[in-house]
């Protein structure tokens, strides 16, 4: 089982707090009557009178809280994945955008790119090289040998347009994913130096990540956030892979609902049942 939006589960904390609060507080209706009835009627009798008057006890609160708990679980969306899910040619893909800064040896970026390819060889991967503009190097493919061959051949002096505009590479990658109709796309920028050039706009829908060596971490910290990209250190590329895996799962759920047992509808149904109880009439006077 996996949970699509685990952060939603944090909403269970206030619900649990409310349950504890109401369980430990005094009985309802004990002070619910207007007037100075404390002087005339004993507390236990007064409570029963209030209950009879308003027909009110905690049942409705408990039902509302139970409905809230089910709704939160539905928001978190637990799913049971099944084997043999149908696959689609354009379900997922990633683009490695490699900056070919003039005069900078691209060996470190090449190494990171190779690690990413080897970590998930079945994931269709495209390569875009960027200097003054972005250029297609390889289309989305799982042909590892082809990707590595072109990675090896990449060099700054081969770029048709010199300069430093890594953002243009991201825009180019975005267009590549859109042209291929990729549902769950990821753009991984491998910069050579500190940020330069205009920022890419947002809105393509693809995940973005910037993988930097330690030396560039501070330079890219705020810039990556402004680009809507996750900043990942080159030492551990796991977050990049995990993000794409999650996006793949979401895309597969949307593309082929039968590929997993989505518990959201069942939890929503449970919430509806609890909610229905709120409409029961009270035996008011």
């Amino acid at each position: 089982m996996s949970i699509v939006a685990p952060l939603a589960l944090l909403l269970l904390i206030p619900v649990a707090a409310a349950i504890l609060l109401f369980r430990n507080s005094g009985p309802l209706g004990s002070s619910g009557l207007p007037g100075d009835w404390e002087r005339l009627i004993d507390a236990p009798l007064r409570r029963r009178l209030a209950l009879g008057l308003a027909g009110r006890d905690r049942t409705r609160i408990w039902l509302a809280l139970a409905a809230a708990a089910f709704l939160i679980l539905a928001l978190a969306r637990p799913v049971l994945e099944r084997d043999g899910a149908p696959d689609y040619a354009n379900l997922a893909g990633r683009v490695l955008v490699i900056e070919m800064a003039p005069g900078v040896d691209p060996a470190p970026q090449r190494r990171i790119a190779e690690r990413l390819i080897d970590a998930w060889p079945d994931m269709p991967t495209a390569i875009v090289a960027v200097a003054g503009a972005g250029f297609d190097v390889a289309p989305l493919t799982t042909d590892r040998a082809h990707l590595l061959r072109y990675l090896k051949a990449l060099a700054p002096h081969l770029m048709p347009e010199r300069g430093r505009r890594p953002g243009a590479g991201v825009v180019h990658a975005e267009a590549l994913l859109a042209r291929a109709g990729v549902i769950a796309g990821q753009i991984v920028l491998l910069p050579a130096l500190a940020p330069a050039g205009p920022r890419p706009g947002g809105g393509g829908g693809a995940l973005r990540a910037v993988i930097v060596p330690d030396a560039l971490r501070d330079d890219w910290g705020n810039e990556a956030a402004a680009w809507g990209a996750a900043l990942v250190e080159e030492g551990d590329v796991t977050p990049v892979l995990t993000a794409l895996k999650d996006a793949c799962r979401d895309a597969r759920l949307s593309a082929a609902p039968g590929s997993a047992l989505d518990l959201r509808s069942w939890l929503t149904g449970a919430a509806a049942l609890c909610w229905l109880g709120l409409f029961r009439r009270r035996s008011a006077a």
């Binding site: 009798l45 029963r48 009178l49 209950l51 009879g52 008057l53 027909g55 009110r56 006890d57 049942t59 229905l276 109880g277 409409f279 029961r280 009439r281 009270r282 035996s283 008011a284 006077a285």
Partner: peptide, 22 residues
């Protein structure tokens, strides 16, 4: 469904409630 519940389900009666005179 709430209409059916309001019409058909018996009213909830808290245990131990006293019905005050009208």
């Amino acid at each position: 469904l709430p209409l059916a519940v309001m019409r058909l389900a018996p009213p909830s009666s808290p245990p131990g409630a006293l019905s005050p005179p009208p």
